[in-house]
Amino acid sequence: MVRAKALDQNPRTDMYLELTGFTSGILLVGFLWVHAFFVVTVIFGASTFNTLSRFLEQYYLTQVGIALVFLIAVAHIGSVARRIPTGFREHRSVWRVAGMMRHTDTYGWALQVVTGLAILVLAAIHIWVVLIDWPIEAVKSARRVQADYLLFYIILLLVAEYHSGVGIYRQFVKWAKIRRRSLGLAVGAAIAFILAVNVGALWALFRLGCIR
């Protein structure tokens, strides 16, 4: 605690990192919601899904969107990675503190580190398999979900929604004046809703995959 900090750094760096982590996180959650509402169109049939997919691609919205989300994700990883405990001893410290107090919020964050790293790997795989199978079409997605990737997508969905839920909750805890219990309930309800939308989309894709 007594170590003096070097004075030659930009004093605003830590603030910018904090704001970047916050902003990019909110934008990524926004993306997850938009993504969910795009995918769920498959419930109304393959043609609805394809029409939307083609429309977005025609105006380069998909391509620009993927590039943007990639950049935002890089900014997010870059700004929040500084929080990840380094080394075994630090990880053990965090889990021990959470464990000794049986403290939900500390556990919540400790798990956010795990889910964040899981998303890094799983989302990269997801983007890769979508890109090599370009363009996005309902039948291709359905076949993928039905054949090999159902479990993969269920896991990706759960870790992504967990990470975003806890992330949003903590950002509101940090910046806003809302009671934590109400906040937890509101975020929980929102996550439950978006999970339901995504599960509906997965179910529709799986069924479509069975038919074809």
Partner: peptide
Amino acid sequence: HYEVLGSEDGIFGCMGLMGCMDN
């Protein structure tokens, strides 16, 4: 005030875990 508080060792180091408040 910012020079003291505006860093990773000050307010921007807080992660909102609320172990402090709950205890």
